[in-house]
Design a protein around this nucleic acid. Structure first.
Lengths: 243, 243
DNA sequence: GCAAAAGTGTTTAGGATACACCCATGA
DNA sequence: TCATGGGTGTATCCTAAACACTTTTGC
């Protein structure tokens, strides 16, 4: 037991961002190439240290979002993932990083006006398949972020955060398919989504044209939680062969 | 933008524990009465600062679990909830606390051999109903912990962590009822649980006797994730009155 | 007209729910 | 034997899934 003069050890607090978006039907994450050691030249999640002792953690996340990804804090989903603070995760000293998950709609330019010019969108499967190595424990953070996104799609209206202001039901379906990694029946999805009151609401009588019949446009409704959840297909535990 | 001589501000890292258990059909949380300022005399979650710069965060959680609650780290569910670090949450300085959720089986003695003798199990509704105020932002942490527990009961076998080594299906049902705050049909619950392969496995031909017909005993199986989830009853969004 | 995508109808199987009923034990 | 909780059977409702089919556009 420590004596009265004992003082707790200080740590350095960092923020890391997992910024996900949908580009050409597949899930992408924003990565930056590190310019300094440790891990110079390696791809890493955008992030940085607390700027001063009175800065809030989420405030720091918003700041990094602006500085490193040129993304506006508003009109963007941001939630905390957790703290990552293994004693040996950073050779510079005791660093604890609070990771955040951000969801952005598909953007025209990869990253416009980025602080670190080395920023780029990378398909998440490049990382999960081991073809792209990340600095620190960022692969673990990304894995946790994906799992968080997958389950949140089931219980909340998070999927609309991947879409722009207005969107079609088919676009919303692409979000579910990309994040869950499954194929869904467009006809059943169409009705399933519309049967949830307040999930999506019609956005004017406007249509949109690409090929085939134009689709109706919707915008995100006010509902944030989905009860009952939209359960994703998966290894069913109950359906056993029983013959 | 900071110059080259800029150094990130240090923070003090603490760990807080939300230890939940089931006592006489209702959910309880372990609280300690603070002996020192700030918030001296107020109930608070057990926790403390990192003991030294090389201690892992989860290691610190385990240590506090032992020191403050006399609970063995093994045979106990422990997971991180997240970081709580509002700049003004602790008047002593910049403190960031990493909160953990622990689930313990019902214990014979409230808390045996506790470091802080002021530790006690309190019904969670005493806090959520506002009849018991907590120090710092611990009410928020407790709220988040409860929500985490509720959703994890749906998708994982976490419920068994509330039970002792062997348990009956009725005991498992009490866990779901207490955490979700609902009543479930015992007959349907009985089959629903048993239809999930690997969730619970029979524990010998032993029975147990109280009143009425003895129940079969089970122990936790190897399965940790439930697919599809055990969806809790709630405000159904789809079932609208349509007459 | 034809291709392509949007949107609708309908059938079927499996799970959720409600509840009648039987079983095993203590007192 | 009765009360009490454990465990089984079963009918009904509802949803998910599969898929045939119609609609609306561009070319």
């Amino acid at each position: 037991m420590p004596d009265d003069s004992w003082e707790p050890p200080p740590v350095l607090l960092a923020v890391d961002l997992v910024i996900l978006t949908l580009r050409s039907m597949t899930l992408h994450v924003l990565l930056v190439e590190r310019g300094i050691d440790p891990y110079a030249g390696t791809q890493a999640l955008p992030g940085g240290f607390l700027s001063n002792a009175s800065e809030g953690i989420e405030t720091a996340a918003h700041r990094e979002l602006r500085e490193e990804a040129n993304l506006d804090a508003s009109r963007l989903h941001l939630e905390q993932l957790g703290a990552y603070g293994a004693p040996d995760r950073d050779p510079r000293g005791r660093v604890v990083s609070v990771a955040y998950l951000a969801i952005a709609p598909a953007l025209p330019v990869p990253v416009a006006g980025t602080d670190a010019a080395a920023a780029s969108w990378q398909p998440v499967h490049e990382v999960s398949l081991g073809r792209l190595k990340l600095a620190f424990d960022h692969e673990q953070i990304l894995t946790d972020a994906l799992e968080r996104a997958r389950t949140k799609l089931e219980r909340t209206s998070l999927a609309t955060a991947f879409c722009s202001e207005t969107f079609t039901i088919a676009e919303l379906q692409q979000v579910y398919e990309a994040v869950w990694g499954v194929r869904l029946d467009p006809r059943n999805f169409y009705r399933k989504i519309q049967r949830v009151p307040g999930f999506i609401v019609p956005a004017g009588p406007n249509q949109r044209t690409t090929k085939g019949r134009p689709a109706r446009l919707f915008r995100a409704g006010t509902r944030t939680t989905l009860h009952p959840p939209l359960v994703r297909p998966g290894p069913s535990t109950t359906n056993e062969v029983h013959t």
